[in-house]
Design a protein around this nucleic acid. Structure first.
Lengths: 177, 177
DNA sequence: CACTTTGTTTGCATAATGCAAATCATGCCC
DNA sequence: GGGCATGATTTGCATTATGCAAACAAAGTG
């Protein structure tokens, strides 16, 4: 928002140049990550469709969250998916009627109900994950080996700088809306 | 698709180990890129909301495509967004009634109608882009400088290996959904 | 028991999506 | 020139995803 401040007027051209340099770096990075993201998205979508084309991507994300975090209250599921509780609720209904999850009230606390992955749900997640991992592996195999470590290192550094908690095996960005 | 071929049976354990190594590499990469993607998605969504919270992310993606490719036929817009023509059509309607784009029939060829960014649309894209670039720049500034080049290099290598056409300034993956 | 807190569910409204069928404007071929 | 294949847009239909706000329900508190 404010690449040009009062300071700029003092330092003149050099500051402007530095700004431009950083901006260019930002553009390059954003381009690179965006492209890589697209690739990953494409891979994920393809993997999902090959295994189960009746599930939508948001639904699959929900399954993945349940697979990695274990049974969750609807509220927490909603939080992990970064959606409104009502959205999570209705998604849960659909997933339940598709046999992918179970939704039973917690006996301890009858006001909350817990979503659990069914065996079918677990299998879908596993198959899609395997499929996806295979595709990624195939891509990675085509990369120069020495780029691999750098890639991971650089990406982690980037994420750390952005304050994003490292994502064990969480969602799939797909949510990009 | 075929990490295990007939050859595997000949080389025995070593091949299994290699497979595991590659798979692990794949997992690390996917984790890293996924995390970075999430960060980028978050940044994009935030930037968009700060500038214009009445636009949805898909709509904004459409504007970005128009900004980078220039006026497009609806069919082509749909292709660039990787959605069905009917989806693009209705999105175009909404964007038009929001004053972000113009939709006029091509005088040359009246069967096609062309979507053009309006001044308002261009401004939104520019503001959001600036905002986003600033945020990315801020993150990049916190990275060790020597990681930057590697990051770009490694990511490009990854995308190239996956056969993803380098994305000048295209969409935002958000579509993961 | 009245009041608050917390989690779930419903109502209401809008967007995004895909598929298939209906139009519409061209271009081309007898 | 009339009829047909083609390509592009538009409509109809159905489903999902979303958010917000209000209604509910189960605990917990004073």
């Amino acid at each position: 928002m404010s690449p040009r401040t009062a300071d700029d007027k003092m330092s003149g051209e050099s500051s402007t140049t530095a700004d431009r340099a950083r901006a260019a770096a930002g553009d390059r990075v954003i381009d690179a990550v965006l492209t890589a993201s697209r690739l990953l998205v494409a891979v994920s979508a393809r993997s999902l469709n090959e295994v189960e084309d009746s599930l939508t991507l948001p639904q699959f994300r929900a399954l993945v969250v349940l697979a990695s975090r274990g049974p969750l209250r609807l509220t927490h599921l909603a939080e992990h998916l970064a959606v409104n509780p009502s959205t999570a609720m209705r998604m849960a209904e659909r997933l339940a009627s598709a046999g992918m999850i179970d939704r039973s009230p917690n006996p301890e606390n009858r006001r909350e109900s817990i979503a659990t992955l069914t065996e079918a749900g677990r299998e879908v997640v596993e198959q899609v994950t395997t499929r996806r991992r295979d595709e990624i592996t195939a891509i990675v195999e085509r990369m120069p080996a020495d780029h691999l470590d750098r890639l991971v290192e650089a990406l982690e550094s980037f994420s750390a700088a952005g304050g994003e908690p490292s994502a064990g095996y969480d969602p799939i960005p797909l949510g990009w809306q």
